[in-house]
Design a protein around this nucleic acid. Structure first.
Length: 868
RNA sequence: GCGCGGUUAGCUCAGCGGUAGAGCACUACACUGACACUGUAGGGGUCACAGGUUCGAACCCUGUAUCGCGCACCA
């Protein structure tokens, strides 16, 4: 297929090409990983998005980076596996289906029963789940879709249960009655990581209780949770607190519930701080983690006054039963006031733990749960410390290390229905008394009941890196090469996956982890549905094309720094694609592209040589970028080269060389074709659709650009002569603007060359100056404005319009500026300490600079005196 | 309380020891056969502050302020 101008539209139209090429890549199996390949492996497992999920900008960033790595890896000769899939997302999915059930059928999951409800979830998943998968395809993600996995797939689910059985056998999983984080909305226990603390404005309520042994004497207590007074089984003071030490062992009257006032002991416990509140703590072992510990130390009774949904049960007393915990708080304060024992209400701000998903305060609750004592914590720590696994940016290593050092057992059971059922079976006590318990996947038989709980979703995700692969795939592609994810799941997922990898495969699961930044809006706020500040990536793709979105976003996504998103950035990405598209269109105006062009076979213009030199520098800059995962730098390098070096400078300067019959034409075209072929490959990971369209359209195909070898830097050198020409043109154009000569007015520029070679490039310089001709002169022409450059003095004839006085003034101003510069450099060079201490190269550079300024000054003075 | 990150042009950010940079926005000119999703030129910065190290600091060190994020505590 050979290109011709008629095939390229005036502007790049992504909508008309994207779906076509995506289908073509898939049809040709280009995303399919071959475990039998002899090529070195490169692999990534996708952080599985929730099946309920829809594409956000965060996903766009994350998955574009993965796609860039994968496409780049294919180009650099790797056999690539990008393994996609979705996560069953226990709470999130169950909530979605329950909400639908309530809305459409006015039923709860309990109305349906477990089996029927799960059937509905699967139906929902088949119908609506995985929307995000198609959205990832729109983005251009080159995943091996034939290997798509789901965390509830039969084989995967079985493995999750096997792992449970295995860890239980190793004694790492145990069941226990412990204080856990309870979500009163989702009605399940949560892990510590699923609780986020938020500062809350509230009150510190002071109330007094009478000391039983000293009637008429009161002890003042401060609390933020008066609604839990009914669960108090003691009050505690610090034994070293002189105010109260002698009261230890006495008793006070618990004021609530009023009909059941109890005498509870005054304890001494070191955990009580002198300064906080009154220094007297009410101890509620059932509803506070610290109080529970105190209770354990002193053998206190535990009175649980809450129902699972956060309402009070009958132990709360007749005035409170059935009230929600926050209504009960108001009620309890009223009651204390009524009893005349409320001393004061102090405004108080404290941190309250919220359920991440339901966004309500969690309730510390004593319950039977399954816990995991994490395996391989030491090894996991060492793997990162010793750089077996590298983090980018490396500052996350410290965060990771700190978490592992202070690691707590993981509560892995959830009181949900949607998820991996816990493989534990119980036989209700028969004649022998105690219930029998077995930990195994299959039912032990008749009369055995399976534990009704499911496992934390992350207990399945932590196996994702290896359990998504069959044996053959694993042999080739595991450990994976890189993991790309947000730092917000460093504990949830990254750390746990490292431990799981070490425990179950004996290997690290990935060699490097790239942590993206978090995308925020223009005001720096997190993107969220409720704020409505989260643009739909699909809208952006429709407006600007997937490549525009990818390039625009990546260009402003520096390593590990949060990103303030602005649609303007996507506009720029789109504009960039269009710019390169049009450069190729320009090329086609001069005939077909020679896909095998070899510029070194030609006598090249200084502009062509310079272009190739800059291309080499750009390739090196990009290669460095990939080595350090500096994606925005790669994008910037591409942008600078394509827009600046290729379009603004090379193409403009080469227009004169492209006229029919020019001796430089062949070399210029060769340099151009060579460069286009390389830019297409360099740009491909960022802009896959545009580059494939051009690659095929210009005739580089039929092999996909993605499967074509990555360009290597050759030995071309940047050309200082070209640089001098561009610099001179720029100064001359400045002169023209100074005299308000309109851009469309042709000017008969004159030049007094300082170097002979300039004469050879007069045609190019004329184009750059937008002039029909350029005439060499040997002395300053009359009535012209002058500007000295490295290639000679350029004159702008002003046809008598010039006011010699004005030009004199302008030159004087410029002379003054140059004198200041000379003075600055001279001062530096006259400093003995500088000359003797600074590296010779630096000193030389200053000397050279000084010479240049002096030469320019001389020329300015000459121009000035020639004005008369 | 501990830790991490930010503070550079109006905005978004590069630069991390040797003349302060880019894009956008702004001003002026130009619809010149690649591109107005464009081109050319221009204005605009005591690089948060204070000390220190250095011949030389936006860059390294110490401290301060301020914004943000973790972790711990929170009766």
């Amino acid at each position: 297929m050979r290109g011709s101008m008629s095939e390229l539209s005036k502007a790049y139209e992504p909508q008309s090409v994207e779906d076509r090429w995506y289908a073509w890549w898939q049809a040709n199996g280009l995303f399919t990983a071959d475990p039998k390949s002899a090529k070195p492996a490169f692999s990534i497992v996708i952080p599985p998005p929730n099946v309920t999920g829809v594409l956000t900008l965060g996903h766009v960033l994350n998955n574009t980076i993965q796609d860039i790595l994968c496409r780049h890896a294919r180009q650099t000769g790797h056999e690539v596996l990008w393994l996609p899939g979705t996560d069953h997302a226990g709470i999130a999915t169950q909530t979605v289906v329950e909400r639908k059930l309530r809305k459409e059928e006015k039923k709860t999951r309990h109305d349906l029963g477990r089996d029927e409800f799960l059937k509905r979830v699967w139906e929902w998943k088949e119908k609506h789940g995985g929307i995000i998968i198609n959205q990832l395809k729109k983005l251009g993600c080159s995943c091996d879709w034939g290997r798509e996995r789901f965390t509830m797939d039969e084989a995967y689910a079985r493995k999750v249960q096997e792992v449970f059985v295995d860890l239980h056998a190793k004694g790492l999983i145990y069941r226990g009655k412990r204080m856990v984080n309870w979500c009163p909305v989702s009605l399940t226990a949560l892990s510590d990581e699923e609780v986020i603390s938020k500062p809350q404005k509230g009150y510190l309520y002071h109330f007094k209780v009478e000391i039983v042994e000293k009637p008429g004497t009161f002890l003042e207590i401060a609390t933020t949770r008066p609604e839990t007074i009914m669960g108090d089984t003691a009050v505690a003071v610090n034994p070293k607190d002189p105010r109260y030490a002698d009261l230890i062992g006495l008793h006070v009257v618990r004021p609530l519930p009023f009909e059941n006032r109890a005498e509870i002991p005054i304890l001494g416990d070191e955990a009580v701080e002198f300064e906080f509140g009154t220094g007297v703590l009410k101890v509620t072992p059932a509803h506070d983690k610290a109080d529970y510990e105190i209770g354990l130390r002193h053998g206190l009774a535990v009175i649980d006054i809450f129902n699972p949904d956060g309402t009070l049960n009958e132990l709360g007393g007749e005035d409170f039963v059935g009230l929600d915990r926050f209504e009960a708080r108001v009620e309890a304060v009223d009651k204390l006031r009524e009893l005349g024992i409320l001393v004061k209400e102090e405004p108080h701000e404290n941190n309250v733990g919220f359920s991440e998903r339901a966004d309500v305060p969690v309730e510390p609750r004593l319950s039977e749960q399954w816990f995991l004592k994490y395996p391989k914590t030491v090894e996991a720590r060492d793997a990162v410390r010793n750089q077996l696994i590298r983090f980018f940016p490396d500052r996350w290593e410290k965060v990771y290390d700190h978490w592992l050092e202070n690691i707590q057992d993981w509560c892995i059971s959830r009181q949900l229905w949607w998820g991996h059922r816990i493989p534990v079976w119980t036989k209700p006590e028969g004649g022998s008394g105690e219930a029998e318990v077995r930990v195994q996947i299959e039912s032990p038989g008749e009369g055995w009941e399976q534990d009704s709980d499911v496992l934390d979703t992350w207990f399945s995700s932590w196996l994702w890196a290896h359990e998504t692969m069959d044996a053959e795939t694993r042999a080739k592609f595991y450990p994976t090469s890189a993991l790309v994810t947000g730092p917000d799941i460093i504990f949830f997922w990254v750390a746990r996956m490292i431990m799981a990898g070490l425990e179950f495969t004996g290997e690290i699961p990935f060699r490097s982890v790239y942590f993206t930044g978090i995308i925020r809006d223009k005001q720096g706020r997190k993107m969220s549905k409720s704020l409505g500040n989260s643009p739909d990536p699909l809208d952006l793709i429709a407006k600007y094309g997937a490549d525009g979105l990818r390039f625009g976003l990546l260009r402003i996504a520096p390593q590990g720094q949060d990103i303030k998103f602005d649609e303007q950035q996507v506009v720029e990405g789109r504009n960039f694609c269009n710019k390169f598209w049009n450069a190729c269109r320009f090329r086609l105006m001069h005939g077909d592209v020679d896909v095998n062009a070899d510029p070194s076979a030609h006598d090249l213009s200084i502009f062509a040589s310079d272009l190739l030199g800059r291309l080499d520098s750009t390739i090196r800059r990009i290669d460095d970028g990939y080595a350090e995962y500096r994606f925005s730098e790669i994008a910037q390098a591409l942008y600078d080269f394509v827009w600046g070096d290729f379009c603004d400078r090379f193409i403009e300067a080469s227009k004169a060389d492209l006229v029919e019959g020019s001796p430089r034409r062949a070399g210029t075209l060769a340099a151009m074709d060579y460069t286009i072929g390389r830019v297409l490959r360099l740009l491909h990971p960022y802009a896959p659709f545009l580059t494939e369209e051009l690659w095929q359209g210009l005739g580089f195909g039929p092999v996909s650009v993605m499967m074509t070898p990555w360009p290597e830097a050759a030995n071309f050198k940047e050309e200082p002569k070209a640089h001098a020409i561009f610099e001179a043109a720029s100064r001359a154009r400045n002169l023209r603007a100074t005299y308000n000569v309109p851009s469309n007015k042709r000017v008969a520029w004159k030049i007094e060359p300082a170097v002979e070679w300039v004469r050879e490039v007069f045609p190019a310089l004329a184009v750059l100056l937008h002039s029909e001709s350029l005439e060499a002169v040997s002395s300053p022409p009359a009535g012209a404005a002058a500007c000295p450059t490295d290639i000679g003095i350029v004159y702008l004839p002003l046809d008598g319009l010039v006011d010699p006085a004005a030009e004199g003034l302008r030159l004087e101003t410029e002379i003054a500026k140059v004198e200041v510069e000379i003075e600055k450099v001279a001062r530096k060079l006259s400093s003995e300490s500088f000359v003797s201490n600074a590296p010779a190269a630096v000193v030389d550079e200053h000397r050279k600079r000084q010479e240049e300024w002096i030469a320019r000054l001389a020329e300015l003075r000459r121009a000035f005196s020639s004005l008369g």
